[in-house]
Simulated assay, not measured.
Amino acid sequence: MGMIEVEAVARSFTVRRRDGRRFRRSRTTVRAVHDVSFTVGRGEFVGYLGPNGAGKSTTIKMLTGILTPSSGRVRVCGLDPSRQRTALARRIGVVFGQRTTLWWDLPLLDSLTLIRHLYRVEAGAHRARLAELTALLELEPFLETPVRQLSLGQRMRGDLAAALLHDPELLVLDEPTIGLDVVSKATVRAFLERLNTERGTTVLLTTHDLGDIERLCRRVLIIDHGRLAYDGGLDRLRAAVDADRVLVVELARPGPPVEVPGVEVAGVEGPRQWLRLPESVNAAAVVAALAERYDVRDIALRDADIEEVVARLYRGEHAYEPPGRPVAP
């Protein structure tokens, strides 16, 4: 049994629109999620991606019991989220980057103490867990500070501690690093990586920050227009959309774009040039040709940027079929 099991799930909403000519309201059915299936195993760290309006938030709300599926089957920790929401809440932690579960006018420590009572965590276990999270998330300097006076990065670390005080099996994160500075992002990412690898906590992460995905996730689910568009690893995603590699060449002096058969020059900036290499082109042969024809100071080969890869998938430049479940166009 997986930690998360989603089978042929759909969710529709009825939207009322005003008909200006007849002064009446018409009803339209909108399918936010349609025939989505996937399983997340225990201990996995999975990224759940999609453009705005693709169905990510609707899926998360069904997984946490906020919404009931229109059809299909959802199981989280072996429970039906919509029917066993209270029991499920004791086994999962949820963090929404743009909302907080902390009490705005109370010191952070008081908020974490109140949350202990909400989850009915035994006092000794709470002290041990709070001490561990305080050390890992570096909360000590601002435990006595009211939540409203915390920086965004400090509040996010407080929200993570609040979601993990009852030691959940599954952590669901919705944009946990949104708006954070570089240092705060690094702290949160390092903590999540350690949580997954050392404690075996299953993590489902939705984000628009693809740096989070590249750093943390070994598997990616991509939803678009309510349908699952991809399920697999980042390397396979790059190969699936046939994204070009990039060869960064630094010449001894600025000059016109280099000329190598089968290679496109994507950009020139002073002595530095960016060359797109299709998978069919041998990188070693291109490097040899450049070294023979030009005075080359430095060369670096980079895989396709994950942002470009995902953007191609969103634009429909590649149709991917997850194993066993074809995705309709």
Results as ranks from 00 to 15, higher is better:
Met3His: 07
Glu7Gln: 15
Ala8Gly: 13
Ala10Asp: 13
Ala10Leu: 00
Arg16Trp: 11
Arg18Thr: 12
Asp19Arg: 10
Arg21Phe: 14
Phe23Asn: 15
Phe23Ala: 15
Arg25Gly: 12
Arg27Ala: 15
Val36His: 01
Glu44His: 10
Val46Asp: 01
Gly47Arg: 01
Tyr48Phe: 15
Gly50Ile: 07
Pro51Asn: 03
Pro51Glu: 03
Gly55Phe: 04
Lys56Cys: 05
Thr59Asn: 02
Thr64Asn: 04
Gly65Asp: 09
Ile66Cys: 01
Ile66Val: 14
Leu67His: 12
Leu67Gln: 06
Thr68Gly: 09
Thr68Val: 13
Pro69Lys: 06
Arg73Trp: 03
Leu79Met: 11
Asp80Phe: 03
Ala87His: 12
Ala87Pro: 10
Arg90Pro: 11
Ile92Leu: 08
Gly93Tyr: 03
Gly93Ser: 09
Gly93Glu: 09
Val94Tyr: 01
Thr100Met: 03
Leu102Gly: 07
Trp104Arg: 11
Trp104Cys: 10
Trp104Ser: 07
Trp104Leu: 07
Asp105Ala: 13
Pro107Thr: 13
Leu109Phe: 08
Leu112Pro: 05
Thr113Tyr: 05
His117Phe: 11
Glu122Trp: 00
Arg127His: 12
Ala128Pro: 08
Arg129Pro: 09
Ala131Thr: 11
Thr134Lys: 04
Leu137Gly: 06
Leu139Ala: 06
Leu143Ile: 07
Leu143Thr: 08
Glu144Leu: 09
Glu144Pro: 02
Ser151Phe: 03
Leu152Phe: 07
Arg155Val: 11
Arg157Asn: 13
Ala162Ile: 10
Leu164Asp: 06
Leu164Lys: 07
Leu165Asn: 00
Pro168Val: 08
Glu169Phe: 09
Asp174Glu: 12
Ile178Tyr: 00
Leu180Arg: 04
Val182His: 01
Ser184Pro: 07
Lys185Thr: 12
Lys185Arg: 15
Lys185Ala: 04
Thr187Gln: 15
Phe191Asp: 12
Leu192Ile: 10
Thr197Asn: 01
Thr197Tyr: 02
Arg199Leu: 09
Arg199Lys: 08
Gly200Leu: 05
Thr202Ala: 08
Val203Pro: 08
Leu205Gly: 04
Leu205His: 02
Thr207Arg: 00
His208Met: 02
His208Ser: 06
Leu216Lys: 00
Leu216Arg: 03
Ile222Gly: 02
His225Ser: 15
His225Thr: 14
Leu228Ser: 02
Gly232Thr: 06
Gly233His: 04
Leu234Asn: 10
Arg236Gln: 14
Leu237Asn: 03
Val241Thr: 13
Asp242His: 10
Arg245His: 11
Leu247Cys: 06
Val249Glu: 01
Leu251Ala: 06
Arg253Ile: 02
Pro256Asn: 01
Val258Cys: 08
Glu259Lys: 14
Val260Phe: 01
Val260His: 01
Val263Ile: 11
Val263Tyr: 00
Val265Glu: 00
Pro271Tyr: 03
Arg272Ser: 07
Trp274Met: 14
Leu275His: 09
Arg276Lys: 10
Pro278Ser: 13
Ala285Arg: 14
Ala285Leu: 13
Val286Asn: 05
Val287Arg: 02
Val287His: 03
Leu290Lys: 05
Arg293Ala: 14
Arg293His: 10
Tyr294Pro: 14
Asp298Glu: 12
Ile299Asp: 02
Leu301Ile: 10
Arg302Leu: 14
Asp303Arg: 14
Ala304Glu: 06
Ile306Asn: 05
Ile306Pro: 08
Glu308His: 09
Ala311Trp: 01
Gly316Ser: 09
Gly316Asp: 06
Glu317Phe: 09
Pro322Cys: 02
Pro323Cys: 13
Pro326Lys: 00
Ala328Arg: 09
